[in-house]
């Protein structure tokens, strides 16, 4: 299992469009992918779960990935956060 801290740096935070991009990404991996924030652990393959985190810009989340492709999945998710979900800011 891989655990990482991950920061929401994009301006709009984990809003619906970013969440749906993230779900599309995570759905492609076999590993279970969890995000933890606001005292709750949610499935990163669930759009409702991600929205429930209500993670605004600057929020710190923990990422927990476990499974056969955990390394690939972790770096892909980190990359998407770092890339501001392709929103350019």
């Amino acid at each position: 299992m891989i655990e990482r801290d991950i920061e929401v740096i994009n301006k709009l935070g984990l809003h619906a469009r970013a969440a749906s991009k993230l779900v599309k990404l995570t759905a492609g991996f076999e590993s279970t992918i969890k995000l933890i924030g606001r005292g709750q652990e949610v499935d990163a393959k669930s759009i409702m779960g991600i929205l429930m985190l209500a993670a605004a810009q600057g929020t710190m989340l923990s990422l927990k990935v476990e499974g056969a492709d955990e390394e690939l999945a972790t770096s892909a998710v980190e990359e998407m956060f770092a890339d501001c979900f392709g929103e350019g800011e």
Binding site: D43, S46, G49
Partner: peptide, 11 residues
Amino acid sequence: ETHAMILQDPM
């Protein structure tokens, strides 16, 4: 698209 995702959400 968001609606379709919510519908297909395992949760």
